[in-house]
Nucleic acid binder design. Sequence first.
DNA 1: TATGAATGAGGATTCATTCAT
DNA 2: TATGAATGAATCCTCATTCAT
Lengths: 224, 224, 224, 224
Amino acid sequence: MLSQQEAGHLTSIKPRMRRKDARPGELIQAALEVFVERGYAGARLEDIAGQAGVTKGTVYRYFRNKQDLFEAVVHATLGALIHRGRAVLREFEGPSIELLDQVVTAWWQGVVMTKASALPKLMFSEAGNFPALARFYYEHVIEPGRWLQRRILERGIARGEFRRVDVDCYVHFIIGPLLYVQCWDHSFACVVPGTQLCDQRFLGAFLEHLHAALLVESGTERLA
Amino acid sequence: MLSQQEAGHLTSIKPRMRRKDARPGELIQAALEVFVERGYAGARLEDIAGQAGVTKGTVYRYFRNKQDLFEAVVHATLGALIHRGRAVLREFEGPSIELLDQVVTAWWQGVVMTKASALPKLMFSEAGNFPALARFYYEHVIEPGRWLQRRILERGIARGEFRRVDVDCYVHFIIGPLLYVQCWDHSFACVVPGTQLCDQRFLGAFLEHLHAALLVESGTERLA
Amino acid sequence: MLSQQEAGHLTSIKPRMRRKDARPGELIQAALEVFVERGYAGARLEDIAGQAGVTKGTVYRYFRNKQDLFEAVVHATLGALIHRGRAVLREFEGPSIELLDQVVTAWWQGVVMTKASALPKLMFSEAGNFPALARFYYEHVIEPGRWLQRRILERGIARGEFRRVDVDCYVHFIIGPLLYVQCWDHSFACVVPGTQLCDQRFLGAFLEHLHAALLVESGTERLA
Amino acid sequence: MLSQQEAGHLTSIKPRMRRKDARPGELIQAALEVFVERGYAGARLEDIAGQAGVTKGTVYRYFRNKQDLFEAVVHATLGALIHRGRAVLREFEGPSIELLDQVVTAWWQGVVMTKASALPKLMFSEAGNFPALARFYYEHVIEPGRWLQRRILERGIARGEFRRVDVDCYVHFIIGPLLYVQCWDHSFACVVPGTQLCDQRFLGAFLEHLHAALLVESGTERLA
DNA sequence: TATGAATGAGGATTCATTCAT
DNA sequence: TATGAATGAATCCTCATTCAT
């Protein structure tokens, strides 16, 4: 999130000043990690501060309170998510399956493989405690995401590339395994060594799986 | 989870007695709901007790402490999960796709549609805070579940019914959408009305999706 | 405030139960004392609890928070104040100067000589921090009190007993010295030994002072 | 408090310089206001600094700490009080009632109508928290003030001008209403608009009141 | 001299846990 | 067995104070 290369050749600038600008981002990063690991209620402000290399009180210079920090974490991380989504939307040419591959791959590289991957688990956990935030997340991440996938599926079907599947349900078959990876890698994988799911093999197999499931091949159309 | 029929023909017995036997189960039910809604740290013993119709102090007659109660919740709910799994394992005849349908349907009816559906979200959230419990859950629910699915997939491939997919990954493509439904319905669905995912249409579409993705049809084998 | 005689012959009742009923009153008493001594912000919940013979947490069983406790203190003490005022108003016979004596004496015995005497200093100090409470106090204590005095003065003037003074100002000349005693005895008197003002001599001299200042008399010199 | 005339003909000097000299006084002014409004504990250094147009850190260039600032406020304001008192003491001729009028009027103009009027309320509030300061205030303001009034009363009685009143008590009847005005105007009057007491009418009525109460007169009814 | 970022002690508040009834 | 009053450890949060710039 924060450019660590930049920080490198800025040593000339007074650390105090530089800090000031970097702090909010550092705190948000630290908070994301601790919130994901412990849950909102279980996360101690002191730990978050410690993770960011400061003390308790400093957090309150940048965030009104714990809830404010939490919302900042979600909004900051959410930005990355939305940004990735939009990037893909523009280039809308060629076979639909390639479009789908692109979207899935973009999500994989832009979310699953980044710190942002932790957010969905966090939102699942805390939606009940932060209804307003959950609704915000729903409108700004989930709805657009589902809409994007639905359009691709409908395009593929319309062009005779995809089977005539139940589009409303299918979006969940696509996102489900991806979120499973994200939830897993931020929970059990931390506790049962060697079970990390996020690797290249998973992505490849998943794309192959979607191809097989969606493509109308050798002329035979199958329907439920 | 708790046999409500049983409770039915025990009305003659004095409530005091019945109460005593039912209490632990009622508390576990209540605790499951509150834990799922609020997370472990966010759940207050008083709310759990209230949900079960008793007061705080009573909880301590049946459970040593909060952590003990939490583990009891997981173990009790987990029992249902494992039980369902075993049930399917025995009857191991016929085409592999039917076997898969049976397993998925059994999970749907035995887990997704029951209170036990809440457990995975809870485990994702609290795995980091309860490593031992997470490992226990991994060994007794996840590992067996994955093993079962792997065997079915391998059987189908061996018998030429299924495409030669990456079995290790495929188990996640199967469980992913199901867990997504469960996580969703216990988080966002409580907060964004009308977005419940668990309905018959989903199951039907999902089975159709698996058929299309797995079955070797019209003799043509497809590979990535 | 709380009947301590009653408590005496109730020893048979279980202490736990008796406590429960007595607690709020005890806490309010303790809080009044600590608030007066330290001011609102300077008063520590722990000290208040200690003063009442309990621990911090117990306060929160009876009062939502510090502010709630503070308001309870004011309301409880205020009750006594208002009650005294009303009591005197009813018996409205005889010479106006006797009425005035009665009212002043009633305030002296019902407020100045009791714990309630501490309240005005507290309200002066905290009016700025609790505007709503201050307005409430103004409406329910000050306004009625001033109205009562104004009526007495007007009555005396109308009946030719009192000089034709500026009634609106005069109410302050009456209450001023009384509140001075109260503020003094709860501040400097605690710190400069032997300067307590509340004694019988003060009351006597004050009544004599009011007589001299108000009565329309005929050239006779009066002495206490 | 700070001579504004002086400040006037220093405009030529660079603001930086002027600033430096004016700072302590500006801070003390600001602190007086905030302390009076919020009480000692409730006043935040940051607010005081803001009120003075500087930032928190600057306060510490001029005052060791919060307590030091508080004492400076009291001492500085106290200076005005004492100064006014002394001024009256010198000219000790003519009828005693005129002397009393002079003293009361001097206090009114030199204290009640100035910023110094806020001090008594502050001292009442914080005497318990600053015993040494309270004793200092007692010795340097209260004792001399009472002594002055006592001497005037005794003089009037000795010369047959005043009734033979209880001098020790009477000083409180004189100062009581004046302090009431001061406490009121810095507390309730800020919160209940239109209830300010400090106006010319009050002073006139009060002097008339004292005349009526003290003077040995011959049957004449007096009116304001 | 002035700033404001950072600290950390202190106090409000919550809640798991105990225990007398 | 159930209750709920009481406890006190834990945590959020505030703000006086320090100090590098």
